[in-house]
Design a protein around this nucleic acid. Structure first.
Lengths: 210, 210
DNA sequence: TAATTGCGGTAACATTGGTTACATAGTCAT
DNA sequence: ATGACTATGTAACCAATGTTACCGCAATTA
C-alpha cells in the first residue's frame, strides 16, 4: 500500500501526512460496475484514488441518470468531503467505471489534517476547484451544445479515461450516460460511421478519427 | 462596518476571526448592475456578502449567458476562493442583482485563517457544499426540465431573493438568464397569465400563484 | 436445432423550442 | 401631437430530438 500511495500522492503530500495516511487508511479494491455510493446515503469515509476510474452520476425524479464526470488516479470526491463534515446526504451516485484501487480515510482525520498540513489543504482546495470546473463543463455541454457534439465529447472523454479507442458499451448504455434515448444515439453513431469517424459493431465501437 | 459584520457573520465566526476581518477587510458598496467579476480575470480578494444579491453567470462561445445561481447575505463566492489560492482565472461572471454591501478580504489571509480558525474552515467547506449543490440544481433544471418548468422555477427564485412578487424585468432579460429567446419567454408568460398564475405589464410582471 | 433474448437499424410521427417577420402599443423627447 | 424607440403579442415555419413501432441479426439457452 505504501508504494502505491507514494506513486500517486508522494509528490503532493508531506511525509508526515503520508505516514498518517498509511496508519489510518484502509486499502480497497473495487470491481468494475460496483456501486460505491448511492444518492441519499450518509458517508463515513473519504476515498483517495490510487488507480482506476469512477463515474459520478446525477439522477432525475424517474430514476434516469446523467453522467457528471469521471474521477481518476490522484483525485478524490469533493462531494464526499463536505458530506462527511456536514453529516449531509449524498447528492450523487458513484459507480466504478473500471476496476479501482483506493484508500479510504475516516472522516475524523479530515478536519484534523486541514488544520495541520498545508499540503492537505492545497489538495482539498484543488480538488474542489477541479470538481467545480468539471461540473461547469458538464453544464456547458448540456446547455450550449447539441446532442451530436455532446456525443463526440463523451466518446473523446471515454477514450481518454479508459486509455483505449475501443469502447465496449451498448448504445443503450451510452444513451443512459447522456440522458437521452437509444434510438437517438444509434442514429447519431450511424451518421458518424458514415463520415468515417468511427467503426460500429455489436457491443463495441472503435474510434477512428473524431 | 463592525455592526454589519456581526449581524451577518457574528454567529458563525469566532471573536478572534471577527477582529481580524475588521482589521484587514475593506467595506464596499456596489450598485445594482455593477459587474463584479469577469470571465478570465484574476482575483485578488474574496467577498463576504453583508446585504444584497449577486448573480453568477456562465457564458457560451458567442457571449450568450446562462444564470447559474444567486449569492446572498452570509455567503461568499467559492470559485473566488480557489481562484485566489491557485492563481487561476475566473470561470464565471458576477453581477450585482441589487445594491450590495460586502467586505473584501485579501487573498493572503485565507490560507492563514484556514489553518488557524475552525469556524473559518467550516465556513469555507459549507460554502463549497452550498455552491456545488446550487450548481447541481441548475444542472437538474437544464437537463431534466422543460422551459415552462424552468421559467416557473426561475420566477420563484427571483421572488425569493428579491423579496417582492413584482419582477421589473423585460422578457428579453429573463430570456438571457435562461439562455433562450425573447419570443419563447413571451409565449410561455402569456400562457401563464391565461392560467391566472401571473399578471403581465410593460417592464413588470406580478406573481399571483405559481 | 429451436426458441428466446438482447442489440442495433430505420421509418414515421409528435413535440419542444428556436427563428423570422411583422403588428400593436407604451414611453419619451422635441 | 409627432416621431423614434422599446417592449410585447402572435403567426408561421423549421430544426432537433424524443417516441413508437417493427425488423433482422447475433448470442445465449433450452
Amino acid at each position: 500500500m505504501i508504494n502505491q500511495l507514494k506513486e500517486s500522492y508522494g509528490h503532493i503530500f508531506e511525509d508526515g501526512l503520508l505516514d498518517e495516511i498509511v496508519q489510518v487508511g484502509t486499502f480497497k479494491e473495487i470491481p468494475e460496475g460496483f456501486k460505491m455510493m448511492e444518492i441519499g446515503e450518509y458517508v463515513k469515509s473519504m476515498p483517495l484514488l490510487i488507480s482506476g476510474v469512477i463515474k459520478v452520476l446525477r439522477e432525475d425524479n424517474e430514476g434516469d441518470e446523467l453522467l457528471l464526470y469521471y474521477l481518476e488516479k490522484g483525485e478524490t470526491c469533493s462531494m464526499t468531503m463536505t458530506c462527511c463534515l456536514g453529516q449531509k446526504q449524498s447528492e450523487i451516485r458513484a459507480i466504478a467505471e473500471t476496476d479501482t484501487k483506493l484508500i479510504m480515510i475516516p472522516v475524523g482525520k479530515m478536519e484534523e489534517w486541514t488544520a495541520k498540513y498545508k499540503s492537505w489543504r492545497n489538495f482539498v482546495f484543488e480538488s474542489y476547484h477541479n470538481r467545480i470546473n468539471e461540473l461547469l463543463m458538464t453544464l456547458d455541454s448540456i446547455a450550449f451544445y447539441q446532442m451530436d457534439e455532446r456525443l463526440t465529447q463523451y466518446l473523446i472523454e471515454k477514450v481518454r479515461v479508459n486509455d483505449t479507442d475501443i469502447i465496449n458499451n451498448t448504445h443503450q448504455e451510452i444513451a443512459y450516460d447522456l440522458y437521452t434515448s437509444r434510438v437517438v444515439i444509434s442514429r447519431l453513431l450511424k451518421k458518424m460511421e458514415q463520415l468515417g469517424k468511427i467503426e460500429l459493431g455489436r457491443n463495441y465501437l472503435k474510434i477512428i478519427n473524431l
